[in-house]
Design a protein around this nucleic acid. Structure first.
Length: 306
DNA sequence: ATCCCAGACAACACGAGTGC
DNA sequence: GCACTCGTGTTGTCTGGGAT
């Protein structure tokens, strides 16, 4: 058969997809053994697949140092190129069904923090479940850091939440903004004041979410910026808990109005002058192959908050 | 010209053993 | 504990020859 001029011959027998799949899983897990477990293959098989890939591409994809492997810069490049291809192939059946207008099965994984799950997601999830009843939705209740780890390891289709700093390997699309609010018990001295300065808050004990979460960082940053002191007397997980404790007079707190229903027995004082609005949005890994389910869900999220 | 079948061969998978 | 090498069995693909 006449060879196409200048076109390198492609040997159909080479199973490039298997090699790339093994490579991508090894890159994600940082271990050939773990990649083999995920793929239901033996460790030598995955090792050989990667070696074959390295041989054919005439490069080294992993630094093998003792028990751990790490992507080389060339490996990073190949991972960025191949990951969407592998995922696209592995989800071909679902994508094909979706393209034919059928979106009856499959799974949608969403990572989000508790506040997002409680206040942002209920309506989008309700609509999604109504329109696509056959798709199983898995909500992963995680902190921001764990959500990022899940995104990077491809354990979730997308994450939704509030981001202060955006790493290079993800994209963040804000979809909704909420205003910062000081909440106090109804009979609190601050509840009666016309206007509040940051210094007015200093004498009172604050109830804040745990130290490692972004709210605390934000509060710390703003108080430092205005040279004001603050005093945290209680650390509590979750806005519902915080509201309850403010209600019974254990302290005051700074929240965003996303968590306020109007039913609470507390006073609310806007703090927009000092604290920025808090945006909630969609977090995706760059280059991620978006499943049809994820695409539909994002459409619904945008529809709800438009 | 097309289809079917059998033999040859390449690629792949695995377990066992070895080395770091 | 993890990755690599080696030996071996299995699977998939190609090819050539015979039948239709």
């Amino acid at each position: 058969m006449a060879d196409m001029a200048g076109t390198p011959q492609i040997h159909y027998k080479q199973n490039r997809l298997k090699q790339l799949r093994a490579f991508c899983h090894a890159a994600q897990t940082g271990s050939i053994s773990e990649a083999a477990d995920r793929l239901y293959l033996s460790q030598p098989t995955v090792s050989l697949q990667i070696q074959a890939l390295e041989r054919e591409l005439e490069t080294v994809l992993f630094e093998r140092r003792g028990p751990k492997i790490k992507l080389t810069p060339e490996g990073e490049t190949l991972y960025k190129l191949s990951q969407p291809l592998v995922e696209g192939m592995d989800k071909l059946q679902e994508t094909f069904a979706a393209s034919c207008g059928k979106l009856e099965s499959g799974e949608l994984n969403i990572a989000a923090g508790e506040s997002t799950i409680l206040y942002i997601l209920p309506e989008p999830i309700r609509l999604f479940a109504e329109r696509y009843p056959g798709i199983r939705v898995k909500l992963h209740n995680v902190t921001g850091r764990d959500g990022m780890a899940m995104l990077r390891a491809d354990e979730t289709d997308l994450a939704i939440g509030s981001m202060l700093e955006i790493p290079d390997d993800v994209t963040y699309q804000p979809v909704v903004n909420y205003a910062p609010v000081l909440i106090t018990p109804l009979d609190h001295p601050l509840a009666k004041k016309e206007s509040i300065q940051l210094h007015d808050i200093s004498p009172y004990g604050l109830i804040l979410p745990p130290h490692h979460l972004s709210t605390w960082r934000m509060v710390d940053l703003v108080f430092k910026q205005y040279n004001a002191n603050y005093n945290v007397t209680l650390e509590a997980g979750g806005w519902e808990v915080i509201k309850k404790y403010v209600e019974i007079g254990l302290g005051i707190s700074i929240v965003t109005d996303v968590c306020l229903t109007g039913e609470e027995q507390i006073a609310t004082i806007p703090l927009g002058e000092y604290f920025p609005d808090r945006s909630y949005g969609i977090v995706l890994r760059r280059g991620k192959f978006l499943s049809p389910q994820a695409k539909r869900f994002l459409e619904i999220v945008k529809e709800v908050f438009e």
